[in-house]
């Protein structure tokens, strides 16, 4: 037991497998947001919960090394810019801000509904990154201390 942070080896081994399944499920929910219940908001929370699972099982230091927090911060700030860029593309190609300028495709197919799946992906990334960052910052605070500032 070199690594004292985190939980026991059983939890770590299970987490090593389950986190990928949870991430896969999250992406499934995001990509099928225009066909089934779900979408960017629900899938984003599932992805954030997968990262949280890793953080609970392995401890904070490992997670910071594994995930590259600065990259997550950049993604969070970039996703809202991407949303705006998609809106501007709607002006140039569709004639209105946030217009649905791509082809509609066939109903009930995965690649259909124009820009709606793209917006779902952007919102999913945004929600996942921002919620995980909140938990990451909250993990740092010492909840027993008080009255020192």
């Amino acid at each position: 037991m070199k690594d004292q942070q985190g939980m026991s080896i059983i939890v770590k081994t299970v987490t090593r497998v389950s986190v990928w399944l949870i991430l896969l499920y999250g992406w499934y929910i995001i990509l099928h947001g225009h066909l089934t219940p779900g979408g960017g908001f629900a899938g984003g929370v599932i992805i954030a919960l997968a990262f949280l699972n890793v953080m609970l099982a392995y401890g904070k230091d490992f997670t910071v090394k594994w995930l590259n927090i600065q990259f997550l911060k950049d993604m969070e700030a970039a996703s809202i810019t991407l949303f705006l860029v998609m809106g501007l593309l709607g002006i140039s190609f569709g004639g209105a801000f946030l217009a649905n300028f791509l082809g509609k495709g066939k109903l009930f197919h995965l690649f259909s509904a124009g820009t709606i799946p793209l917006f779902n992906v952007i919102i999913g990334i945004k929600v996942a990154m921002s919620l995980f960052l909140v938990v990451w910052v909250l993990a740092d605070i010492d909840s027993t201390k008080g009255g020192e500032l």
Binding site: H34, L35, K104, L107, I116
Partner: peptide, 8 residues
């Protein structure tokens, strides 16, 4: 819109 999910 071509989307089956009306809420989306």
């Amino acid at each position: 819109t071509g989307a089956a999910n009306l809420v989306a």
